[in-house]
């Protein structure tokens, strides 16, 4: 049961992140196709986008395991992995083939911004939320203890 729960929780976390990455990447692929006058996305592109996002989401759970402190080293490895996987994925599969330099720069900048926002969400916003939750929990428990007396 414990193993099942661990796998379940791992997959729930992983698939959520995979979903976010897939939707974001697919969005840019759609925009790029529109710019080129194509109003459809090939199934092979959707599958490769999903595959690359799945790979990164799995790797992410190894690099930044749930419940463990995200050290500087882990964060650097995570940023490098994101850049290598998404950039090489785009080059190898040709999602954005023929994109001009400004477009490449824009996509890379967006990738870095997205990574920064993900990091902020995980490490700053959620940490602050956890601190607030724990403060309220202590107050709740204290009030409850006072009532019992």
């Amino acid at each position: 049961m414990d193993t099942y729960l661990k796998i379940y929780r791992w997959s729930m976390r992983m698939k959520q992140r995979m979903g976010i990455y897939t939707v974001a990447l697919l969005f840019f692929k759609i925009i790029w196709n529109w710019i080129n006058g194509i109003f459809a996305v090939k199934s092979v592109d959707i599958l490769t986008i999903w595959g690359v996002c799945l790979l990164f989401a799995i790797l992410e759970t190894v690099i930044l395991p749930e419940g463990k402190e995200s050290t500087v080293l882990r964060t650097i490895i995570w940023i490098l992995a994101a850049n290598i996987i998404f950039c090489s994925g785009a080059v190898l599969t040709g999602w954005f083939s023929g994109i001009p330099v400004w477009g490449t720069v824009g996509l890379v900048l967006f990738l870095e911004l997205a990574i920064a926002l993900m990091w902020f969400g995980d490490n700053v916003a959620m940490h602050a939320d956890s601190v607030r939750l724990n403060r309220q929990l202590r107050q709740f428990q204290q009030q409850h203890q006072d009532k019992e007396k």
């Binding site: 729930m12 976390r13 959520q16 992140r17 419940g67 969400g121 995980d122 959620m126 940490h127 939320d129 956890s130 939750l133 724990n134 929990l137 709740f140 428990q141 409850h144 203890q145």
Partner: peptide
């Protein structure tokens, strides 16, 4: 039992993880 919760952790997707006095999450 909220009085047996040691700590709470905000998780992605709006979930919250509660660590109990027994160590279970």
């Amino acid at each position: 039992n909220l009085n047996a919760v040691v700590s709470l952790r905000s998780c992605p997707g709006g979930r919250i993880e509660a660590r109990m006095v027994t160590g279970e999450k």
